[in-house]
Amino acid sequence: MFRKGFSYSFPIVAGYLPVSMTFGILAVTLGFSKTEAILTSALIFAGSSQFALISILPESFLSGVIIPIILNLRHLVYSSILSQKFEIKKASITAFGLTDEVFATSVNTRGDERFIRGLEAGSYISWVGGTALGVFAGSALSDDAIASALVFSLPALFLVLLLPNLKEYSTLAAFFGGAIALSFHFIGMSSAGILLAGILSPALVMKLRRMMG
């Protein structure tokens, strides 16, 4: 199952490499040492919050620490769902690598905790490796056209994971979730939108379902 999870991480790896390379380049440009940049990816392993950290920290230590953690509050919902769906025995290890993409792939694939860890391992290696590549050889390796094409693998992955779920009332949950996320995306609060989508959408669908008998 670990191997299966590792092989299923391929689409995630394709999307992570250009983003993590960009992170490595940017972190060094913003004054992080090479070691600090790689350690950031190795210890945090959460894309959007890492970018927030390195960009806000030069202005304010407090904001630079609090905002990335707020951005990651949506992980509370991910872990809640996985803890109900899978029997997780080594939560202290499995929890570490639970990114957006690992969560979305896990809930849509028949697997177990070892499958999740395989997914996490592939994703983690590419994230930290990509950061190191960006730090040491970023400008020589970066090609905008290829990088933006690879980044497209992430929305493609999410769509392919979403399509099989569009049945009965889950379609309504997808609609509400997408609408809430889109509203917040427009005002630059994507992470808050994702968190609220995961909380409000099911509540709305359950309410509608009860009303319709």
């Binding site: 949506r74 919902v77 991910y78 809640s80 769902i81 109900q84 769906k85 957006d100 969560f103 979305a104 809930v107 849509n108 992430l154 929305p155 999410f158 769509l159 994971l161 979403l162 779920n165 009332y169 889950s170 949950a173 997808a174 609609f175 509400f176 979730g177 997408g178 809430i180 996320a181 889109l182 995306h185 994507s190 939108g193 994702i194 989508a197 995961g198 909380i199 959408s201 099911p202 509540a203 669908v205 359950m206």
Partner: peptide
């Protein structure tokens, strides 16, 4: 809770798709 989490996971994947796509 099961019903809530089932809808929640679909809503989250939809939200992740929308924010990464748009």
């Amino acid at each position: 809770l099961d019903e809530f989490l089932t809808y929640s996971s679909t809503a989250l994947i939809s939200a992740l798709f929308v924010t990464s796509f748009v």
